[in-house]
Write a protein that binds this DNA or RNA. Sequence first.
DNA 1: AACTTGAGCAACCGCCGAGCC
DNA 2: CGGCTCGGCGGTTGCTCAAGT
Length: 224
Amino acid sequence: MVRTPSYDKNGLKKGAWSREEDDKLRAYVQIYGHSNWRQLPKFAGLARCGKSCRLRWLNYLRPNLKHGNYTTEEEETIIKLHQEFGNRWSLIAEKLPGRTDNEVKNYWHSHLKKSLKSNEMTPSELKSKPNESFEYEKSENLGANSGDIFPHILESSLARDNYLATTNAEEDGVPPLVSHKEFSGDFWSEPFLVEDSLDTFKDEIWSGKGMALLLPNFDGAYLF
DNA sequence: AACTTGAGCAACCGCCGAGCC
DNA sequence: CGGCTCGGCGGTTGCTCAAGT
């Protein structure tokens, strides 16, 4: 389900994100924010491009994200908004709290698109006939009323929940990240550094004369 | 049991527009 | 005004795994 990690010619890592990288990115963004995605990986100690970090944050690490288990209401909203806006996934995702454009897009392509292609029924209509067999795959030419699509979707959602149960950091026995507010106070003698001062800050760290930057890691701490 | 196929989804790629100099 | 940088977006790809043969 994830790409094999590899390195490009610039030494930047590509492919699946490791738990450690997730922790680093989450910690950094929650402390500093993400005013500059291009510079972020450098300061966060990640061998990733800014775009990759941004995508990972937006699609997976951002707080309040929902995964899997699309409700009938959400499915209907997606269908309705897609009719209205077309492939404007970010626009559609805005109307679905906790959902990302990437997730909506994937859900559309893997579930709703082919469902609607062969069946004009709404999700609620389909769910009201849960015992009908799932036939549309075998009978693409049958058109409307060719089968029950959504039981298949729900089954898939449950499968994804199982997947999440084993990969979700919090459910993995990892404590939730301390919020930015909780870091204020003793954690930083200088809690927030503006972009300009970061370079100096970093230089001092690398030269060994500065203080160590401790970012929270759930197995300890990151030391720059 | 071994192999094949297809679904599902995370992540990458390339383009575009906004903002800045 | 033109060039550059950056963030955002949509399309596509690569990989895993479950189901089917």
